[in-house]
Amino acid sequence: MENTIKIRATLENGVTTVKLQILHPMDTGLFRDAKTGNVIPAYFIKELRCEHNGKLVLEALWSIAISKNPYLSFSFEGGAAGDTVKVSWTDNKEISGSGETQIS
């Protein structure tokens, strides 16, 4: 899964703010296909982890109630320009993806 995640990490006054968006349908399992009338099975990201220089800083546990193409922003102290911020996720079909960026 390439190019499915966009991450930006910016440092301001000693605080690094991470903004990310993942391309994912986040199907609830409650909608029906308009053409076939069949229920579209639930398909959603369950877990997302964010590492700063290899250290786990945030873990998100998600349900179907997170919007399609999930957006997340959070921030932490102690980052420096050039540090690596890595985000990885796994969905309920055990498909995973990841991406990383440098703090700027």
């Binding site: 800083v57 349900s63 997170i66 959070f74 102690g78």
Partner: peptide, 11 residues
């Protein structure tokens, strides 16, 4: 809907 677990140092 979601739970977020924050390490020490997170805002």
């Amino acid at each position: 809907a979601a739970q977020f677990l924050l390490a020490p140092g997170l805002k």
